[in-house]
Structure formats: structure tokens, C-alpha cells
Amino acid sequence: MEVFNIQGIFVKDILSELAAQFETSLTESLSEYKLELPKSLGEGFIQGINFPNGVGLLQFKGKFKKQVVFNFTSKKVHPLKFFYCLEGSLIHSIKPDGERRKIQQYQSAIISSYYHFGHIYKFPVDEYFNFQLVEIDRKAFREHINYKLEDIPYYFYKLFADVEGVREVFYKSNYTLHLAQVIKEIEEFDKDNLVRVNFLGAKALEALSLMLTKYEDDLKENNQQRILRKSEFEIVNDVENYIDQHLMNIETIDEISKKFGLSKQKLQQGFQLKHQHSINEYIKNKRLELALKLLDEGEKNISEIVYEIGLSSRSYFSKIFKEKYKVAPSTYLSSK
């Protein structure tokens, strides 16, 4: 096992210390720092940036071929961490003999340590990992906001007002599809210089807002939660497959919701995120795709096709078919 002790709590200091211990170089562009993991340890990189408003963005991506531990040992108040795991897993604790908590793929966590403790990250061996963190220097953040923290809900106040680090926080849950989309946008953004810095600053705040929205939603009873979790997205896939197989006699959205045990609102969220339109639009498009296939086969007349795709009105079918394909179904059929 190789343990790397780190005194710094902000991106520049953390990566500078690691670069020295790794005996590798550290690159910098407009205050965004990046270092490549040495081949003796594995492959990948660590990069990050801090902004004047107290918000920071940090990413760990790669694979270690031996046991590696990062031990953040500063006695100063560490930033409030909003952690999300895209791939792999990580063991977190705040002291060597403290509780070890595993954060794995599709999970997020809000983490704060006591001021006299730090953070310990234990990385997996020979397992690809990809972690993103939004980190909040609560003192700097408080100085940059133009409202009183006392005016925000108490469950948020407890997180952001603790500038002295008197309260430990570890809150883990599954992160949302919307958050996953934002992280993907951060990863895939390929501009540089000022454009990149501004983009990262905006996306860090967007990710923070989504994490806070999810945290607030998690505090509600299950039947009152409105945000689709990543873990629930598999149900959306199941619903999609069910619709594809039952177009002729598909139930109402309310009935489908009850059948699969996922609220109508969350089903709509899933279809909007995956297909950029509603469930009803998805069903209509699938019916039209099937109708086009049956017209191409030329073995059924239009009335038979209308029945097979689950519609009762031939005129309505003609209307939506022409809207999508710019030709009437009767004209299309006669051209075959």
C-alpha cells in the first residue's frame, strides 16, 4: 500500500503536493491544474480548479495497479464536498480508525469532516474509477453570496453555515440522470482558455444546484419524491420495452405507472431525458414507425394497419402519418 499525505485543502495545493510525491509534472491553464498519474502507480489523471466564489471542481480518473490511499491531514476546515461517482468505487473515512464508507458507481455523497480531522480516500486496485467533486469553501462562499444564510431552509443552512467545521456530514444516495448529464457535459467539453474556465464555473454551480435539489427531495417521503434516480432509470427502460411490445392494446400512462411502480411524473422525466419528448409522443412515434414498416411490407390495407398499431381512427392516423412523413398513407401505399 502506498499512502500519500496531503496538507493542502484546495486544488492548487493538493495537486502540487501530489506532483512532488509522484515525481511528475503539474500543468496549469488559467488556474486549472492537471497532473498525470505516474506509470509506476497506474494510469489516468487528476485535475481541478478553484473559483473566487469558494466553489471548486475536482476530478479523479484512471486506474491504480496497487493499493493507493490519499490522506488529507490538514487541521484546517476542509471544504464541504459534493461527491459523485461515475465509474468504479472509493472507500472514504475521516480518520484511520474511523468508519469506512463505500461510494460506488451511480452514487453521490455530501461530505464534511470535523475541523481537526481530514479525509481519507482509499482507491480500488485494478479498477477503473471516475469521480467528480464540487467542493465549497464555506467561508469564501458565504462572503460572495448576496443573501443571508439564515434565510435559507434549515437543512441547507446546516451544510453551508458551518464555517468552523463543527459538524460531520456524510449523506449518500443515488445521483440523478440530470446530474449525470451535466457531468458528461463537463467531461466532453473540449474548448480551452477563458471559454473553458467560464464553462466549468457555470457547470460546477449547476451540478451543485442539482445535488442540493436531490438532497432536498431525498428528505421527503418516498411517495412525495419527484426526482428520477439513476437507479430508477432501468424501470424507464423496462417501460419502453413494454410499450414496444404492446402497441396494439397499450394501457393509459396512469395504468403503466401503477404496473411498474414508478410515478407518472418520474416516467415522464425519464422519457424526456432519454428521448426529448413525452411518453405519449414516444408511443405515437413507435406506432408510426410500425405503420411505415407494415406499409412497406404491402400485406395489409390501411384499416388493418390502423387496428394493428392500436388506433381506432383512420382519419387521425392519416393526419399524424402525413405530419411525420409528409405524405398521406394512402398515397405512400399506392406508390409501392
Rank of each mutant, 00 (worst) to 15 (best):
P153E: 02
I136D: 03
I14D: 00
I235L: 02
L41G: 05
F260V: 02
Y282V: 01
Y175P: 03
F70W: 10
I46L: 15
P329Y: 02
L179P: 02
A19K: 01
E36C: 09
Q107R: 08
D162Q: 05
F60N: 05
D162V: 04
K326E: 14
S173P: 08
R314A: 12
F271Y: 07
E188G: 10
S334N: 14
N241M: 06
G62S: 06
Y171S: 11
Q105R: 12
L267R: 01
I152N: 07
H144S: 12
D238H: 12
T24Q: 03
F317K: 00
K95P: 07
I302H: 01
G62L: 03
V11D: 00
N223P: 13
I110T: 09
F317P: 02
I186T: 03
Y316K: 05
K81H: 12
I227H: 01
N301G: 04
T213R: 14
N249L: 06
L80M: 09
L295W: 00
N237C: 10
L133W: 13
Q47L: 12
D296W: 08
Q181V: 08
G48W: 01
Y215E: 05
L90W: 05
A20Y: 10
E36M: 11
K336A: 13
R314F: 12
I243W: 01
V125R: 07
F131R: 04
K230M: 14
E240I: 04
I250L: 06
E281I: 07
G88L: 02
I49V: 15
S231A: 09
Y157G: 04
L86K: 11
N5F: 08
F60R: 04
F123G: 04
A19C: 04
A180N: 15
P79R: 00
I256K: 01
V69R: 08
E299I: 08
K214W: 09
Y147R: 05
E216D: 13
Q272R: 15
A161E: 08
F189R: 07
G261L: 02
L262Q: 00
N285Q: 12
F82E: 00
K75W: 08
G201T: 07
L159F: 12
Y115P: 07
E299M: 12
S315G: 15
Q107W: 07
Q265F: 08
I302R: 00
S40Q: 11
S74T: 04
F160C: 09
K75F: 11
Y155D: 13
V195C: 11
Q181S: 14
V169E: 06
I250W: 01
S112H: 11
Q47I: 08
D190I: 04
Q269T: 05
Y115I: 11
R100H: 14
K158Q: 11
Y155R: 08
Q181N: 13
E308A: 07
V169H: 10
L90T: 06
S108Q: 09
L273E: 07
E28V: 09
S209N: 14
E143Q: 15
V239N: 00
F321D: 00
